[in-house]
Amino acid sequence: MELNEGNWLKVAEDFKILWQYPNCIGTLDGKHCVIQKLPNSGSAFFNYKSAHIIVLLALCDARYCFTIVDIGAPGRHCDGAIFAASRFGRALNNRQLHIPPPRTLPNSEKVSPFVIVADAAFPLKENIMRPYPDRRLTPSKRIYNYRHSRARRVSENAFGILSHRWRVFRRPMHTKQSTVCTSVKAAVCLHNWLMKGNHNNRNRYCPQGMADEEDADGMIRPGAWREDAQYGAMQNMPLSARNQRAVNAVTVRNTFEEYFAGEGAVPWQWNVLPNM
């Protein structure tokens, strides 16, 4: 995707319509891809699970497609360091991604910047939202975490579909680093091509039930990809032990919290709240 304001606004419109999270330009996630030990690599690719790893870091749109990817970082680095060192992380921090300026949230006077939704493996920043820590949360914070989780599942499902459909991710990759990176890049490109292709191709690649689905009460029906997720060579990244929060980032998240519990509420969230 070409990085310009027009394309970001299209992504944000999809998140508003499909996932009821306005001013969202993507969900951020990273996966550990297990590889064989690379020659002369020492411990650079050796991670906390005693496996040799390269990292696939990706931003996803609302339709399970990858918009930005960073492939090949050594697995021994923590998530924050990988993101900060990536071209994507540097461009975001330096405001070089041509993200639109802050905008009023729908049916509200509250103003928010456009944000990326991520899990607790990533830092809380003005343009990156992570959930509230799960400790004695107020009802409005629990509602925020639910709405946050709904949007974030997009990247979780995108990675799940990718690893389910491409058998290269079913077991450790036994080849040199450049080939591993090329293989992962090819799988991502083919995934996007099939997801954006004609109706028949998309339905064959990602049929109904492949991704998570919601019923009328907001309860989740797990997607088919989850059945074999535990057997693959693509693993979740560890949660971040540090969270250097900026005041602006906390303010932005609090704005979304108030919005989702107020004028931006969806009817079924109150049904889900007792089960959280």
Rank of each mutant, 00 (worst) to 15 (best):
V247K: 14
A249G: 08
P267T: 13
Q235A: 11
D228N: 09
T251H: 13
A211L: 06
M219E: 06
H191E: 11
G197Q: 09
A265N: 11
D215Y: 03
P222N: 12
N200L: 14
E213L: 14
V188P: 04
L194H: 07
V250Y: 14
P207R: 11
E263L: 03
P238T: 11
A246R: 09
G223I: 02
T251D: 13
E214I: 05
E258T: 04
G223T: 06
P267Q: 06
G218P: 03
G232N: 02
E213M: 15
L239Q: 15
G218A: 04
R253D: 07
G232W: 00
F260R: 03
E227R: 13
N203K: 12
R245D: 11
R253L: 05
A233Y: 03
N192R: 04
S240H: 00
L273G: 06
R242N: 15
D228P: 00
S183K: 14
G264W: 05
G197I: 14
K185C: 06
A233I: 07
N271P: 02
A187T: 15
N203H: 15
A261N: 14
R226F: 02
S183R: 14
M219A: 05
M195E: 06
G209M: 15
A241V: 01
L239M: 11
W268D: 09
G223Y: 01
W270T: 11
R242G: 04
Y231P: 00
V272C: 05
A224C: 08
W225S: 02
T255Y: 01
W268K: 03
G197Y: 05
C206H: 00
Y205S: 03
L190V: 10
V250C: 15
V184F: 07
Q230I: 07
M210R: 05
L273W: 08
N200Q: 12
A216V: 08
L194P: 02
N200A: 14
D215S: 08
F256M: 12
L194D: 01
G218C: 03
P238W: 02
M237Q: 01
E213V: 09
A211R: 02
D228L: 13
A261W: 13
N243W: 04
A187W: 09
W193R: 06
E258Q: 13
N243P: 08
N198P: 09
A265D: 14
L239A: 12
T251E: 14
V252H: 01
N271S: 10
M210Q: 12
R221D: 10
Y205E: 02
N203A: 15
P207D: 13
Y205F: 15
A216H: 09
V266L: 11
D217C: 02
G197W: 06
Q230D: 12
R221S: 13
R226K: 09
V250E: 10
Q235G: 07
S240E: 00
W225A: 01
G264H: 02
A249I: 05
G232M: 03
Q269Y: 06
H199S: 13
M219D: 04
L190P: 01
E258N: 03
A224Q: 09
A261Q: 08
R253F: 07
R204L: 11
Y205C: 01
E213R: 14
M195I: 07
N243I: 06
K185H: 11
D215L: 15
E257Y: 00
G262Q: 08
D217R: 04
A224N: 10
E257Q: 14
G264I: 06
P238S: 09
A229L: 12
N201Y: 07
Y259T: 04
A187C: 10
T255R: 03
Q208D: 11
A261P: 02
G264Q: 07
E213H: 05
